[in-house]
Design a protein around this nucleic acid. Structure first.
Length: 139
DNA sequence: GCCAACGTTGGC
DNA sequence: GCCAACGTTGGC
């Protein structure tokens, strides 16, 4: 089981929209970055991910899981781009802000801090546990 | 709205 | 294959 982080712009597609999709989930299409795509290609069904709001809020708001493995991105005909589907699992009791992550020395190596612009990021098991604690949910 | 960081593109 | 120009992202 691996852990990931998905970035969204909440005014385009946020946590509420993701929750509204229920267990069916939603294709995480539109990613046009090789690193991010490679992370999605590496994902397995059941992998867990944080759902992050950039721009508005700048906080991790909940947990999602991968419900369909890598497949062609339906938002383009370009064969280079694949993506997974994700579905909402549960919200954080308390959102974890970017400022908190940056302020915590144990989280200083999170990709959210070191690779700020990468839209799909790997998360380590330690980071997963830490951020879940901060968010008030069971890992 | 600004601007720094950084990924991508295209000319050579 | 290098590197300058350009476009995009995202925090502030």
């Amino acid at each position: 089981m691996a852990y990931w982080l998905f970035k969204s712009e909440p005014d385009v597609w946020g946590w509420d929209a993701q929750v509204a999709k229920g267990d069916v989930g939603e294709e995480w299409g539109g990613v046009r970055n090789y690193q991010a795509r490679n992370h999605m290609r590496a994902m397995k069904i059941g992998d867990q991910g944080f759902f992050y709001h950039s721009n508005i809020g700048k906080e991790i708001v909940g947990i999602v899981e991968v419900c369909a493995e890598s497949h062609p991105d339906s938002t383009t005909d370009d064969a280079r781009w694949d993506c997974v589907d994700i579905r909402a699992v549960r919200p954080f009791k308390r959102p974890v802000t970017l400022a908190e992550v940056k302020a915590d020395p144990r989280l200083k190596d999170m990709a959210l801090v070191t690779s700020m612009r990468l839209s799909v990021q790997p998360v380590t098991a330690e980071e997963w546990k830490m951020v879940c604690e901060l968010g008030g949910v069971e890992p």
